[in-house]
């Protein structure tokens, strides 16, 4: 009854929120980076939050890496997610924030400490380990969040526009870093974006969401070369 070896399988997913309803049926193969694109209010965030286990769903199944996670708690789904904001606890140092990705009890062994330092190193924050989020720049906060994703080592990474507030250059840099982090962790990525350029730069596939309808992923280049009507309207072409 289930699709072949995809990393993420969504079957008959239904979300109902008052007058708004969203249905989705798609599969994402392992290792792909998928951009989720669509107009505001189409349900992109809702879809990701449902996959992450943060909102109630009305029906359907979600499978991650072959496991049925429909009813699993957010941390038991094999998913790491970055939100638009609130990705770091302001009262903890960057090191502690990253450490939480390894062990939620925050008591790290020597080896885990090394792992945490390594992650900070890889995002270029080695010397900021003991700073708190409020004391570093927006870009550095994003890097710290990515470092945590790195140590979380989940097979699926969901990005709900965590870099939206950054400037274009910085955002591009973060997207590259994300791709690198995902590659290093062997993770599959779903990222919401508004900018087709971002999708072209950092994604292999593209999912178009409009008015509660979710198109299955197709290769970015393919879609961009010949966008369907609705996407064309959204892209303003």
């Amino acid at each position: 009854m289930r699709g072949g070896g995809g990393m993420l399988t969504v079957e008959g997913l239904r979300i109902e929120q008052g007058a708004f309803a969203l249905t989705a049926d798609f599969e994402v193969p392992k290792g792909r980076r998928v951009a989720v694109i669509g107009p505001s209010g189409a349900g992109k965030s809702t879809l990701l939050n449902a996959l992450g286990g943060y909102i109630e769903i009305a029906g359907g199944r979600v499978e991650v890496d072959g496991q049925d996670v429909t009813d699993a708690a957010p941390d038991q789904r094999g998913i790491a997610m970055l939100f638009q904001d609130g990705n770091l606890f302001p009262h903890l140092t960057l090191a502690q924030n990253v450490g939480l990705g390894i062990r939620p009890a925050l008591r790290l062994t020597e080896a885990e400490m090394a792992q945490m330092r390594d992650a900070l190193n890889r995002v270029g924050l080695a010397e900021f380990a003991d700073r708190k989020p409020g004391d570093v720049s927006g870009g550095q906060q994003s890097r710290a969040a990515l470092a945590r994703v790195l140590v979380q080592a989940k097979p699926l990474l969901l990005l709900d526009e965590p870099f939206a507030a950054l400037g274009p250059a910085l955002r591009a840099e973060m997207l590259d870093l994300t791709s690198q982090v995902a590659r290093d962790a062997g993770a599959t990525v779903l990222m919401i974006t508004h900018a087709p350029k971002d999708a072209e730069r950092a994604a292999d596939d593209l999912i178009f969401v409009e008015a509660g309808r979710v198109d299955p992923p197709r290769a970015v280049a393919e879609v961009m070369a010949d966008p369907p009507e609705a996407l064309r309207a959204y892209l303003g072409r």
Partner: peptide, 25 residues
């Protein structure tokens, strides 16, 4: 509101959540 999803995503439950998130905040 601000950190509920983050806590859940990280598996900060019960005592850990109190210790690491709620009490400090």
């Amino acid at each position: 509101n601000d950190y509920g999803r983050l806590s859940m995503g990280l598996g900060l439950r019960g005592v850990s959540n109190w210790r690491i998130v709620l009490i400090p905040r």
